[in-house]
């Protein structure tokens, strides 16, 4: 079985899927922060994107810049087939862990 993705990696991959054609660095940063409910460091997102790209789970290509970026290019990301497969594996693993338990948990620990 492939290596299970960490929570942050899943958050980044799901953000790219949600953002579709608008999945570039800052948009991903904001989407991940929104979903996790906390401020996220750009460096953490960038490092995760680089790691996911090195693993072959995402691909990227440079796009045009905008005036607010002083014309600097945006790097757009896409989740590849391996990324989709890794996300499905992660979801399956969590469902296996929870199978047979009622959510939310109640009573004594």
């Amino acid at each position: 079985m492939a290596e299970i993705l960490g929570t942050f990696e899943q958050a980044v991959l799901l953000a790219i899927i949600r953002l579709r054609d608008d999945a570039y660095g800052r948009a991903i940063l904001q989407e991940v922060g929104l979903r996790l409910g906390r401020e996220v460091a750009p460096g953490a997102v960038q490092a995760t994107l680089e790691r996911l790209e090195n693993k072959g789970l995402v691909t990227s290509q440079l796009g045009a810049g905008t005036p607010i970026r002083s014309g600097r290019p945006r790097r757009f990301y896409r989740v590849g087939p391996s990324g989709i497969s890794a996300l499905n594996d992660a979801r399956t693993a969590v469902e296996h862990l929870w199978r047979g338990l009622r959510w939310p948990l109640k009573g004594h620990a």
């Binding site: 800052r26 750009p42 607010i68 600097r72």
Partner: peptide, 13 residues
Amino acid sequence: DVFLSTSGDLLEQ
């Protein structure tokens, strides 16, 4: 190449 896109993201933010 990473600097250009990353610094652009930071600048935009």
